[in-house]
Amino acid sequence: MKRTIPVLLLVILMLMLLLGACSSGAKEASTSPNAKKALFVGGGNGDPFLIQRLKTLGFEVNAKADSEVTAEDAKNAGLIYISYTAKATQIGTKLAAATAPIIYSNAKAAVVHNLLKSEDQAGTFVHENGLKSIDIVDKKHPIADGFSGNVEVFSKIGNSSFATPTIKATIVASAPGEPGKGTIIAFEKGTADTNGKPLPARQVFYYVFHDSETKINENGWKLFDAMVKWAAS
């Protein structure tokens, strides 16, 4: 009897290892093969900085001009970034059926995709009226990444955009002293868009605008990384 106990323990241990391996395999199988593939729609001078950052975060980036992007490109992406340099008229509804999370630094595209009701809900701070910092409105949101209060996000004054959502959303950050002018706005999966249809994935409105990528400082990149992580998760 004494000899059988070690044998039983060995059998139990082997079964536990086998079950663990099966569980790990099932988890890996459930992960989309496109999870780390990003579709970047744009073509401006500052876009390479954002593309490189996405690559640093482990994404394989498919960069397409607004006139070239197709619905098929969206099907093969785990994350979509629409730059302010992309023309909404060129994109049209080609990405409307996309099920991947989308980050918009393009208000017109957000309108076309029913995230914003009209361009009247958005605006810009440019040139001498640009921003150097933003206010964290919801410091508990994962995108805030531990920041609170006023945070400098540019090394010098940069061009920025803002939006005021009318559908359910979380304004994570805003223009300084203007909490209604969201500079980072998070939309959860399932939220009804302006047409009442549920969003198929998380969406984010992002403030970087008009060649300000070169001015993003360490704080700004940390917020960018947290935004991408939240959207893609």
Rank of each mutant, 00 (worst) to 15 (best):
Ala122Arg: 13
Lys140Asp: 06
Asp138Leu: 07
Gly123Thr: 09
Asp211Gln: 03
Tyr84Pro: 04
Ser148Ile: 12
Asp193Trp: 13
Leu199Ala: 03
Gly177Leu: 11
Ala88Cys: 06
Glu128Met: 13
Gly196Asn: 09
Lys75Ser: 01
Phe125Lys: 10
Asn62Leu: 07
Ile136Arg: 08
Lys87Asn: 00
Val7Ser: 08
Lys94Trp: 00
Ser24Ala: 07
Ala97Met: 02
Glu28Trp: 10
His113Tyr: 07
Leu57Tyr: 09
Pro179Ser: 11
Tyr206His: 07
Glu213Pro: 01
Asp73Ile: 15
Gly46Ala: 15
Leu50Ser: 14
Ser148Pro: 12
Ile82Ala: 03
Leu79Lys: 05
Gly44Pro: 10
Gly146Asn: 02
Ala163Arg: 08
Tyr104Phe: 06
Ala163Ser: 03
Ser148Lys: 15
Asn150Glu: 03
Lys222Arg: 15
Asn114Lys: 11
Met1Cys: 05
Asp193Ala: 13
Asn129Phe: 14
Glu128Ala: 15
Gly146Tyr: 12
Pro165Thr: 11
Lys2Gln: 07
Phe49Ser: 15
Lys229Phe: 10
Asn45Leu: 13
Gly196His: 06
Lys37Gly: 11
Thr191Asn: 09
Ile167Leu: 12
Gly146Ala: 10
Asp135Tyr: 02
Phe125Ser: 07
Ile184Pro: 05
Thr164His: 12
Glu119His: 15
Arg202Ile: 14
Asn76Phe: 04
Ala175His: 15
Pro101Glu: 07
Asn150Ser: 01
Leu54Ser: 00
Val11Ile: 03
Leu95Arg: 06
Gln203Phe: 08
Pro198Cys: 05
Ala107His: 02
Met1Trp: 06
Met16Asn: 15
Ser160Phe: 09
Ala71Met: 09
Ile5Asp: 03
Trp230Met: 08
Ala38Tyr: 05
Lys222Glu: 14
Gly123Pro: 12
Ser30Thr: 14
Ala21Gln: 04
Val204Cys: 01
Lys37Arg: 13
Lys108Gln: 01
Thr85Val: 00
Ala122Gly: 06
Thr170Tyr: 14
Leu131Glu: 06
Ala86Asp: 00
Lys181Asn: 14
Phe125Asp: 15
Ser23Ile: 13
Phe154Gln: 04
Val172Cys: 06
Gly58Phe: 13
Ile82Asp: 00
Ser67Phe: 08
Leu95Ala: 05
